[in-house]
Design a binder for these strands. Sequence first.
RNA 1: CGCGGGGUGGAGCAGCCGGUAGCUCGUCGGGCUCAUAAUCCGAAGGUUGGAGGUUCGAGUCCUCCCCCCGCAA
Length: 320
Amino acid sequence: MRIAFLGTPEFAVPSLRMLIAEGHELAVFTQPDRPKDRGHALAMPAVKLAALEAGIPVYQFEKIRLPEGVEALAAFMPDLVVTAAFGQLLSAENLAVPKYGTVNVHGSLLPKYRGASPIQTAIIEGEEETGVTTMLTSLGMDTGDILLAAKTPIGENETYGELYSRLAELGAELLKETIARIETGTLEPVPQDDALATRCRPIKKQDAEIDFSLPSKRIHDLVRGLNPAPTAFARLGEANIRIHRTQLIPQQEQLLEKFASAAPGECVIASPKQGLIVRTGDGFIGIAELQFPGGKRLEAKAAMNGKKLLGCRFEQKQEV
RNA sequence: CGCGGGGUGGAGCAGCCGGUAGCUCGUCGGGCUCAUAAUCCGAAGGUUGGAGGUUCGAGUCCUCCCCCCGCAA
């Protein structure tokens, strides 16, 4: 098939690679190169790198829904358009181009977690299961009819980054099956049940601040849902301490007895041998990996060699 | 040339107004112990990111370079 692939970050790469391996005739549309990190170097989207590697033509538009983009898409005369974490809205003109329609690969079990951050949000919300869904793209935000879905459990300590990779792979497999069944005409699009739909918004900086007055589990879910990026943090005086990994503590009886009066956010244990343990709303949580301003990420035990945090208390989160 | 922080024994840090480097952990040896992640005694280990400069003398001041980190995007 002639397939136009619209995608941008790593999440879309396994799907693109799959399409390449399947021998489809491809054109890639992705976001423009953007200035990244310090300095001013332009960085190519992951999908562009993968496409160039395979010698596939790449088109980059600020907005593919504008006439220039629509024209370029139409000029390729695709049978099918596939989108995966593209990051741009499509117009009715875009959707009218391919005869088999436009298929999107989404990182959640729709209709749950429509929107920009389905993978992070599923973890942060404490979900024990998630998955990927392929759907027909419509003009709404992830509201199109569902084609296929694949479920997967979320590990207790699984991070956003880990789940992201797994879902990207799972998405590629599901897309493969989806396309095969489109070709054979054995798919029946099922409308989403809007009553069950939930929406997730892009993660904002304030979402990443830890509120130690919450239960330990909620904090743990937030931290792993934001790892490796944008990373949860807590304020200690003027400094923002980034918290990369936390650890739930099974037996808390002794701690409770000893530090019952500690306030949420207080470091009740902070030593090179025992690591860092902080009081939370319903108990205690271990900080396994953290990062001070200007420094690299560190195992908490290593960090405790030079910093004396015992008795220090993380600031109360300021509600905005 | 977007803004800022930092590079000191294996790790994390200290070192004020310049006088050849200190702490915690780890490592190694030994003690205690049924045993130990616990504890005690002792030891090894650093051309202080690199190159110049100022100085009687620089980790500490100046210049340039390299690398790391955060913000912004």
